[in-house]
Amino acid sequence: MSATAPAMPRKLTRKEQRAVDNKTKLTSPTASVIAIIIAIVWTTPTAGLLITSFRPASEIRTTGWWTVFSNPDFTTENYSDALGTSGLGQSFINSIVITIPAVIIPILLALLAAYAFAWIPFKGRDILFTAVFALQVVPIQVTLIPLLTQYVNVGLDGTLWVLWLSHSMFALPLAIFLLHNFMKEIPASLIEAARVDGAGHVRIFFTVLLPLLVPAIASFGIFQFLWVWNDLLVAMVFASNDYAPVTRKIAEMVGSFGSAWHLLAAGAFISMLVPVIVFLALQRYFVRGMLAGGVKG
């Protein structure tokens, strides 16, 4: 991508210069201190949750997790109890079955819509785009009853489509907006050149834009994956018992009168496992996608 560097003489290439700049920026002591403080503040609750998940039930109920430093007492019982809940394996599969299409569907639709909004001039485009953008303001809670009514009328109720469609609908406004912005940042000259060479919309979309959009798609994909995986509200309202995802299963572990809430910390970590793996595997794209938004063409 960096092959089109301007032919100006200098000691360092542009890439090297950027690396040096970054290094000086990142090694500023103030920035380091702030970064470390933020890291500690953000990690403490998670660390506390992790410690809690390994403490015996009687300890969890009576003292805080920080007391482990003076009185260490660990057990894996919470994990074996949580994993022993029957149907947890099935709910993991449900979560995966719900999440993957709920990530792919909005990305596919949003890519097409974003392309149209960015590069196909048509009447009312701006108004329509503003309308889509404005849809993000609608809280999903107000849509629950009307949506469920529609699903029941159409006869979709109780199927997985209900979950896929709901998640797709709730994701689309943001997905279109984000991908549109990414697409808009690609230099118009690139598109025009392709057009001059005789490429149609389909060709431009697949051969010119798509390779440039991979980081953007990946970063939105991670967002959407985390959102759907961690979702409890949509699962509570729309999912039938057979398709209950892992979040709902874990919420149900505590019992009607909350007598087993000590299992929640272990349950949270079990459920967290998959998103953490996904994030670690894709974080390269994630960071690149965030930067892609910040660099002007």
């Binding site: 629950l144 009853i145 469920l148 009514t149 699903y151 029941v152 009328n153 109720d157 309202v237």
Partner: peptide, 8 residues
Amino acid sequence: PIRAAAGN
């Protein structure tokens, strides 16, 4: 109440 309202 949501299920009743939705006819479900």
